[in-house]
Design a protein around this nucleic acid. Sequence first.
DNA 1: TTATAAAATGATATAATATAACATTACTAT
DNA 2: ATAGTAATGTTATATTATATCATTTTATAA
Lengths: 166, 166
Amino acid sequence: MLTYSRLAYQAHDHQRCIITALERARVLCEESHARLTPIREIVLKTIWASHQPLGAYDIVDNLALNLHTGKRIKAPTVYRAIEFLLNLGLIHRITSLNAYIGRSFPENTHNDFFLICRICHSTAECSTEQMNSIILHTAERTGFQVETQVVEIIGLCPKCQQEKVS
Amino acid sequence: MLTYSRLAYQAHDHQRCIITALERARVLCEESHARLTPIREIVLKTIWASHQPLGAYDIVDNLALNLHTGKRIKAPTVYRAIEFLLNLGLIHRITSLNAYIGRSFPENTHNDFFLICRICHSTAECSTEQMNSIILHTAERTGFQVETQVVEIIGLCPKCQQEKVS
DNA sequence: TTATAAAATGATATAATATAACATTACTAT
DNA sequence: ATAGTAATGTTATATTATATCATTTTATAA
């Protein structure tokens, strides 16, 4: 019943995550006649560097370090790239962290929810049919028309549970 | 199956909401040997003035208008009152609005979720057993240990749906 | 191919939300 | 009454995000 899940904290070849994400971004942009400019691409790559959501100013700092080409890319530019990527569905905003993370399942029509580790901030993206139907049913019963949803579960990932014990 | 719901947008005697909330706050503070100081009480009252979540600086402004006793209560004081009320479970933080709303069911042990109108921001507090069990089951299956949750459904309340049509 | 419009980025300033740090005041309990 | 704790006052500043206008780049049509 777990339709999708990318469990950040399980071992996986993360280079593949990045390559796949970038490739998918290129295809999607081509299809929708949107331009994946160098700035947008490097912002996406920076966000995909980990499964920890990244704040906008973290991205600014990261670019300053990794580009070291004299001129710094400033906040508004990063926010514009973020907006572009959000609109295309290539990244998610994690509201409770004010941070951004790569979207693992752009093809997924269900709404996603997130398992966010309070300690290491690693964030897993999931989606179930059930969750969606409960939300829709409950809302409908009260006459409320659902548009979007923010479902963020905060707790401890397996690794940080371990380290708390030891 | 809808365990609780306070449907902000349904007609109700809101004065009663406020009176009940304040009374409950007094009792709870007494029980837990916490002090419901004048500032904390007026912040709670201000938040309860409507079923729209209120930003911290909205509260600051409100107090300036309604107290008009020379000295303004400043942001840190309001944030401290907010923290106190959050800890006691008397208010909720609505993450997607950076705002605070009175808690309708402090006795509810389930976790709450919110139906938030995109236009008028009226916010209904709900909770169902089902939602909780899905979240717990999904999380457990991945080895994630749930602590808290943010479930905010954004859409249109019945009233704003009407007004969109007309 | 160049002129032109549209899109993207640069640059500066500032809004909005939240907290740190330390001083002062008020309350509680002996 | 007084010491110790809790709450509030005050100032400064951190953090996240956006508005505005200038400049550059890209796409396209004459």
